[in-house]
Design a binder for these strands. Structure first.
Lengths: 248, 248
DNA sequence: CGCCCGATTGACAGTTGTCAAGGAGCGTGG
DNA sequence: CCACGCTCCTTGACAACTGTCAATCGGGCG
């Protein structure tokens, strides 16, 4: 959308919206200067493929805005999303030339790309950055394991409820909001992308969303905007422990 | 955790079987000495719980021998394995007191435990170790993502075939073996543990193994030993690309 | 206005889970 | 030495959930 204007322009890191959450979060002035020297911004339209699995890439990147996904596709077309990349998430693997998964822009996306070779050098010399990357990778691993429980053991309804709860927690401000508070948010994914995320078909996704609506757990505004009158009602549908303290 | 977890004597790191694969792989003499000062061995019998989810633990560890698992359990008893820990794999998360998953000994297991607080100090000061841990964590993340495809999109038969192929590749020597080579190996897991791994019930696991046997893809010797007359036949059943060249 | 894409809904089939019974291997104790 | 009990595994019958195929709806855009 409006990112196109800035495509090739470098903005100063200190003004960066993800300055304190991305891989550079703990970098000091000098370290930031080094990163700044090897970075460039790139934008992608919703639906565009950023990298194909197996392709060689000469950069790693942080997601500045928008949503991207990592996914695998089988010969016969079955597809499974294996990573959902939001603001400040990291793309690419240091010390590895090729990428193991398709990286796709789900909404319009802007990346802060670092040239891979010099980035690896900085990583090796800068504990602030390598430690932050380790921390982010451990968080990703925890998220992947949470996801494995969803994929392996939850029913379709629980999968949808879990997904909505995850998105709600991320998209809404962490203002807490007391028991029974209501929340509203925009789905960043199509039904098909949700299906790929959850290991379902898009028809089942649609049916389960209709079911949650019918039961008053959620309301729809258009196709993409979700209202949750009572967030605890939604949590009850996820199959997780009542105290909900399991996550993250 | 206060079972008969008898401590074993410290063996010298240079004689350690996982010296060159574990988190200490790239540590030099001096760094090894530091690790040696904070380590102790602990053993667990097959079936014993090493740590319960949520429990506070004062150590992190490397698996020296045996097989352990990470798993999550839902209120109603549904269980999903989210990590399979083999020789040299790392247990625990630095800078976090509690553990997010149940850690269970699947076979008899011996761990090399490092006291957590001092380990964190060493980690912060020793790039050789933190870089190795980052690398191992990235490998774990890739394995988890591969696993997500299995859980989300594969049929029961494909899941079993994929699982057998994974174990076969790990348990048998990497002698390559030309096209159509036959392999044999021991299953390290019960049918129930396999079910927990693959998001199936133990009945379905049993039926699919019987099906593969009936079709001549595998042969059984007792309940646990598997013979694969033609490994490519097994690979054909996994649903993966014929060239199998997706990874690595 | 008409087309296209994403979403919804229905009918039906197939895979997998559930419940239940029984078999095989193994160690213990009479 | 054999019986017993235990654990792990296998198999069957049936039900339920989810996938498949197909028709339709609705909004956005040329």
């Amino acid at each position: 959308m409006q990112h196109a204007d800035f495509r090739l322009e470098k903005i100063d890191c200190s003004a960066c919206p993800i300055r304190h959450r991305a891989v550079c979060a703990r970098a000091d002035e000098d370290e930031l200067k080094q990163l700044n020297a090897i970075k460039s911004y790139r934008s992608f339209k919703a639906g565009e493929t950023i990298v194909w699995a197996g392709e060689n890439v000469d950069f790693v990147a942080s997601v500045v805005s928008g949503v991207a996904s990592l996914s695998q596709t089988m010969e016969d077309g079955r597809r499974q999303m294996v990573g959902l990349l939001l603001c400040s998430d990291f793309i690419g693997r240091p010390n590895r030339e090729s990428v193991a998964y398709d990286v796709t822009a789900i909404s319009d996306v802007t990346l802060c790309c670092f040239r891979r070779k010099p980035f690896q050098g900085i990583l090796a010399d800068t504990p602030h950055i390598s430690q932050r990357l380790l921390e982010m990778t451990l968080d990703e691993l925890d998220a992947a394991r949470e996801w494995m429980l969803i994929l392996g053991r939850k029913t379709a309804r629980e999968k949808i409820a879990s997904f909505l709860a995850i998105i709600a927690r991320r998209e809404t401000a962490p203002d807490g909001g007391g028991v029974g508070s209501n929340v509203a948010f925009e789905l960043p994914l199509t039904r098909e992308a949700m299906a790929d995320y959850l290991g379902l078909t898009l028809e089942t996704v649609s049916r389960q969303i209709s079911g949650l609506k019918r039961d008053g757990i959620i309301q729809l505004e258009g196709k993409r905007r979700i209202l949750v009158p009572d967030f605890n009602d939604l949590l009850d549908e996820t199959g997780d422990d009542a105290d909900g303290g399991v996550l993250v």
